[in-house]
Design a protein around this nucleic acid. Sequence first.
DNA 1: GAGGTTATTTTGTGATCACAAAATTAAAAA
DNA 2: TTTTTAATTTTGTGATCACAAAATAACCTC
Lengths: 240, 240
Amino acid sequence: MTMDKKSPIKFTLTERDESVTITQWVYETLRSAVMNGQILPGRALTIRELATLLNVSPMPVREALRQLSAENALEIQGNRRVIVPKMTAMKFNELCEARIAIESHAAARALPYIDAARLAQLHSLDRLIDQAQENDDLEQISILNQNFHRLLYTANPHQVTLPLIESLWLQLGPFMRLATSKLEEHYLVDRHNEAMIAIEKKDAFALQLAISADIREGIAFANTPELLQRFIEQSRTDAS
Amino acid sequence: MTMDKKSPIKFTLTERDESVTITQWVYETLRSAVMNGQILPGRALTIRELATLLNVSPMPVREALRQLSAENALEIQGNRRVIVPKMTAMKFNELCEARIAIESHAAARALPYIDAARLAQLHSLDRLIDQAQENDDLEQISILNQNFHRLLYTANPHQVTLPLIESLWLQLGPFMRLATSKLEEHYLVDRHNEAMIAIEKKDAFALQLAISADIREGIAFANTPELLQRFIEQSRTDAS
DNA sequence: GAGGTTATTTTGTGATCACAAAATTAAAAA
DNA sequence: TTTTTAATTTTGTGATCACAAAATAACCTC
């Protein structure tokens, strides 16, 4: 059986802002590719290949790869090869539970700092999510959902957990996106509303419950093993 | 008033293993310097200076700095300068609470996987900590204490939180070490024992309590504001 | 002296090259 | 065909150089 040597990588090449370093641009490009599952797990990423693909010199790619590895978005193998980590059912579960533990903590810590202005922003974000759901725009839903959580946690000006949370998002990346299926759209809306009601009441415990539920249902198919299994299978296939 | 332009950095230069890359060795050297507070917060780190100091070419330093920045051990300023982040009382508190939330979660998740062999290892580590405390070897205590926690969390073979936890340790680094003062040595011992008893009983809740208390007391001077303040002051002084 | 302007140095970024180790392909042997 | 071995290519690492931007020093004006 002959097959293509390497699975192709589909990048969404954005215009590069002159004020930003090439390294930064490469980093953002690779990051969103990982987050959106555009690179198959197990796929080996080589510096020169990416440099050619992105039309830059090897140096910025090298730095971006190291940073993404440090953020657990990529994995350095013993051979010094860099790959997109493969997923297992157990690891997936650990990532979800870690999200719940850390994010509900971050939410509770942010609560005292949320003022009316920020709450209004949260509401308007939630409305945008509704729209995106009507349009079935999965990628947009995913982005807006992240913005919602980020806006919540960053209310705390001394917050230190967001980088950790973003690392978990990155690791769940490709699988989180597929999760936001039409089936649970009403759940998501409900949970965000619950969260905002809890915020108005300054009820930390209710907020934690809402965030936990939102996460659990946002990646709800963790509880529908056959779906999860399908994606893990895909991830297990050799993508070198 | 004349003062030295740059505060000196005291490295503990270890022999470099040939099998390991220079970048890795530089990374480890810088990491432990940060962890042990051998670089004043606010101190600007330049590639060439470190390269000269460590007697390597700029390239490995460059990569190590980027990795440490990605791990939140260092901070990239707008000017693209890399510094050791400064500490504030609020940030310190956030870091402690984050540790408690994440580590007690990690401990609970590890509990089902802890077998007799690992428990024995934990016991022997605890004995080593006792010894180190008798010798007043603060650095050794700190290292062994970290090993104890790491050994606990890594019992879970699917664990994903250790990198996040290590990032928090790094950020607390210089301040964590100073915390392990003679005053609370009996607390530490007790908490580790409590943890091990909870493990034997497979009591997740008791384990979480023990770990939480251990962390809280290990950095107990968070509750003695005058001490904390002193170190933060030191951190605020311009160390450029 | 102090404040602002210019000159000088230092710095991060990015490009390119050399090289040993690893991966891949080709060839040979069973 | 299947397995071993050898030849070839590709890869990450590390070194060095160029350059623009930033930081620092020197200078001048008041």
